[in-house]
C-alpha cells in the first residue's frame, strides 16, 4: 500500500483506505475516493500545485496533503 500522492502519471491503482480525522476522511470518501474504486493520475501538477486524479469517471484535483491521506495498492 502506498499513498496516492506517489502515483505516476497515467498509473492506475485501487483505493484501499482513507485516513485522516473523521470529517476530512468523510469528505474524501464523498468525493468518490471510496475503497475498492479505481483511481489514476490524470495530470501531474501545474506550477507545482494540485494533481488531477480520475476516479469514478470524474476528474478531481487534490493537493499533496489530501492525496497523502488516500492509500492505494498499485496493480
Amino acid at each position: 500500500m502506498t499513498p496516492l500522492s506517489t502515483l505516476n502519471t497515467h498509473q492506475t491503482a485501487i483505493i484501499e483506505t482513507v485516513i485522516g480525522e473523521n470529517n476530512h476522511a468523510m469528505r474524501l470518501l464523498a468525493l468518490g475516493f471510496t475503497p475498492g474504486s479505481e483511481v489514476s493520475l490524470f495530470k501531474g501538477s501545474v506550477l507545482g500545485g494540485p494533481r488531477v486524479f480520475t476516479v469514478q469517471g470524474s476528474r478531481i484535483a487534490l493537493r499533496e496533503y489530501d492525496a497523502a491521506l488516500i492509500h492505494v495498492s498499485v496493480n
Partner: peptide, 9 residues
Amino acid sequence: PNNSFYIEL
C-alpha cells in the same frame, strides 16, 4: 490552519 484543497472539475 491546514493545507487541504480539493476541487472537482
